[in-house]
Structure formats: structure tokens, C-alpha cells
Design a protein around this nucleic acid. Sequence first.
DNA 1: CTGTGGATCTCGTCG
DNA 2: CGACGAGGTCCACAG
Lengths: 250, 250
Amino acid sequence: MLIEIKHNPSNLESMEIINEALSKRAFLILVLCCKVNYEGRARSKLGLGERTVLIKGDGSFIIHQDRNLEPINWQPPKTKLSVKLENDVIKIVGMRRKPKEQLELIISTVHLISYYFGSDTKDIELAGYEEDMRHMIMNNPDLIEKGFRPTSKEYQTPQGFIDIYGKDANGKIVIIELKSRKAGINAVKQLKRYINCFLDNKEFVRGILVAPSITDDARELLENNKMEYISLDPPKELKTKTTTTLDYFN
Amino acid sequence: MLIEIKHNPSNLESMEIINEALSKRAFLILVLCCKVNYEGRARSKLGLGERTVLIKGDGSFIIHQDRNLEPINWQPPKTKLSVKLENDVIKIVGMRRKPKEQLELIISTVHLISYYFGSDTKDIELAGYEEDMRHMIMNNPDLIEKGFRPTSKEYQTPQGFIDIYGKDANGKIVIIELKSRKAGINAVKQLKRYINCFLDNKEFVRGILVAPSITDDARELLENNKMEYISLDPPKELKTKTTTTLDYFN
DNA sequence: CTGTGGATCTCGTCG
DNA sequence: CGACGAGGTCCACAG
Ligand SMILES: [Mg+2]
Ligand SMILES: [Mg+2]
């Protein structure tokens, strides 16, 4: 893999390396002392401090402090980047149209600069999502209860799409709201709104909240509204086996 | 600033440097070829590729591909990290209890390893949020309309807290829903639900959605329900002035 | 510690 | 391109 690394470059050297990396759309890594200004959807100002900056070939611009998972400032992919040197201060500016916003990095000192061209073609495999729960239930409706028959197609109300719509063994309409994480009161409210769309039907419509767990408040609200809860974990099976070695087949 | 950098270390060297960085809670940066497995709230598997990894002193564990703003895999702060070398393969594991989850990084080759101890004490100043809008309106209620008088305290309905509650010049109840970004149909639905809490009052309750802009569907839904829209941008004034130089006072 | 809701949310999907 | 909704959301705040 092609990688360039420089320790404690001068600001002039840094500017040239940054220009090189930006023009070649490399993955650029900087450790530096900087101030940061953001203006656009919101506005922010960050005083001097040492930070790690990532700039990706797709225009992602990411500034990390030494704490927290999330970057302190950022710009999404497709940001237009430019760099200039003025009075021995480096400025990297990331601009976006729509929304109009810009992130300005004012650099006093660069401790580390590196850029590389890597190969990363593999896509991630994921499981454990709401959509996985839906597939599991459609393939095995008895997970809800014996005799439950979901309709094969999505059902739309004025309030939006119902996760799963079907009928129980007695022919009663059943509306299912799925949550792949612990369900709170908002999940119950959403289910209630779907049921309200059927009020003029006269016949009782069952509402079932399906989630791995539920908060106490949500459960109370659910029962007060004569709705039901079924505990179900989202399936987490991947299509391929997970390995912890570096075999050729992975 | 103290920083260590090594280009193309052996896996044994890498393991020792990673151990050093982890034990000292440094900010660790790696560019490497790896596979990644995650298991916990969900499950994921990522095949071999070159990635950039950040591990912060607070336990944040971040894996970036060469595209997208967001990391492909991660663990939040307070993750417990460990490293080992087996058959010349480095494994870094990040574990969390509650939720129980683990992220496993299986490394074949390290291209760059660096760790540092930086100084970053400044907090960010932010503006342009819903809370800023609320303050602005409370301090200048005429922004809504002449004669509007908000109550000083928050008002809670069974549906949750109302952003701003007050009365207009005619003494009619006014409920305001704030959005700091473009408002969609969900903002309108939320406002409608608050108003429904006052239905037994008999008297008409005004609902006003305040946002910088609104989608067409949301506007239609709003008007069909006899509610109003006021266009208002969140204020973006910072307490201190933004500078684009490196003056001592910043 | 849990629950709730905002966010420069991001990102995929669908129209 | 805009609207909409899920998310391993993260994160701050309140109870
Ligand atoms: Mg749903
Ligand atoms: Mg609100």
C-alpha cells in the first residue's frame, strides 16, 4: 500500500503535502494544533487545541478531539476542500452548497501528516435490524401466535406504513409495530395512531408491539389502550460464517 | 507535544506499541489491513481491507473505511480494550458491559502506527439549535405575533412537553412547536397531538409550527388541520466573536 | 441508572 | 433532488 508519512513538518511542507493529498483524493490524516470554525446549518467555534483530522477521498472532513466517539466538527462526503498558507498559518476550508455551509480549520502546528491510497472493496454484512425481524415473522408467523396470517404486502394508512398487517385465527385485524431495540412510549403512540385509522371499522383491531424489551411507562400506556406486547429479539444470523482468523476465505 | 510514530512496523513491534498506548491512555492512530467483527446490539462482519483506526484515551474505538463520514464499526467511550498477538496476527478487542457488546479487529499488517498525548481543554461554542430559538422567542414574543404572551414555565401534556405555551392578544391558547431545521409531517403530527390534549376545553386552541422551512406535505397537513406556520431561522449568534487568525485572544 | 428527545444527526430508499 | 424513517444512532439532561 502506498503511504506517505512526515513527522513535524514545517507549515510550508504541510501545505504542499495537503495539496498533494487533496488533489489525488487520498486518505489524509493529520495530528495538529488548531482552531475550528463552522458555519452553516448551525454555527460553532472551537479554541486552540491538539486534534486529529481525517480527510477522505470522498470529501468527508472529520475533526476529533481526544474524547467522545463523535467528531467535534465535520463535513459530510462531497465537501469541496481547499488549503492555503498565510503568515505561516495553514487554513483548510471545506465548503458545501446545499446546504450552504463551511468548516474552517486554522492550523498553527502540524505534528504528523500522512496520506495513503488503500484498497477497501469489501462491504459489511449486518444483522439484527428491524427489517430482519420482519422477514423472520413473515417466514414464521407463528412467532406472533398460532394462526396469525400476515398479508404479503405492505399496508399504508394516512399515518404511514404499518410494519406488519394481518389477521389472527379468528379473522380479527392485527397491526404489528416492530422495534429492534427496547420500545419506549413513542413506539406505543405510533401503534395507537395506526389503530385509530381503523376506528370507523367498528370491529376491534388488535395492536401488537413486538420488541426485545419495553420500558415500564410504555407497557403501562400499551395496556391502558388494550394493546399487546410480544418479546422478540431481532435475529442476528449473518449469511456467512464469522471467522477470527485471516484465512483466505473470509 | 509528545508523539510516537512508526512506519511499517512488524506485528510484534505494533503489538508492543499498542499495549504501551492503551496502558497510557494515549490517542492511538493506526493505518492497517484488517477484518472486523462486531457482536452485541446487532452483529456485523467486514472482510479484509485497509482502514484507519482511532482509539482514544476515553475508550472510544473507531474504524473508518475510505468513504463515508461515519465509521463502519465502532465502540463508544469507556470500552475496555485489549490486544494480543497470535500466529503473527494482531487482535484488538473492545468490550462493553451494558449493553454487552464487543468489537474485534483482526489485523494482518500495520502500515502506520502513532500515539500521542495532546492538550485539548477548550470547549466548543455552539448556536443555531431549537433551544436557541426558544430563548429568542421567550425574550421577544412579538416574533410570533403582536400581543403573544408565552408562559414562563414549560407546559406538560400527556403527550409530552410543549415547546412553548402561551396566549395570544385575544386570550386564546397558543401552542408552539419548534423545529430548528426544515419541518416535515411528523412535526405537524406532534403539534396536532398536543392540541388534541385540549379538545375537552371546547374553546379553539391555536397550533403554530415555527421552523426555518417546511415540506409541501407538512404544509398541506397543517392547513387541513387549521394550524399555522411561521418561518423563523434559529439564531446563530455566538457569545464570543469568531476569528480566523491565531491571535492570543480567541 | 433509565428514559426521553434533539442533532450541522448520517445514510439508505423511494418517489 | 427532496422527503422520509431507521439507527449498534450518540449525547445531554432530567427524574
Ligand atoms: Mg414502523
Ligand atoms: Mg418538541
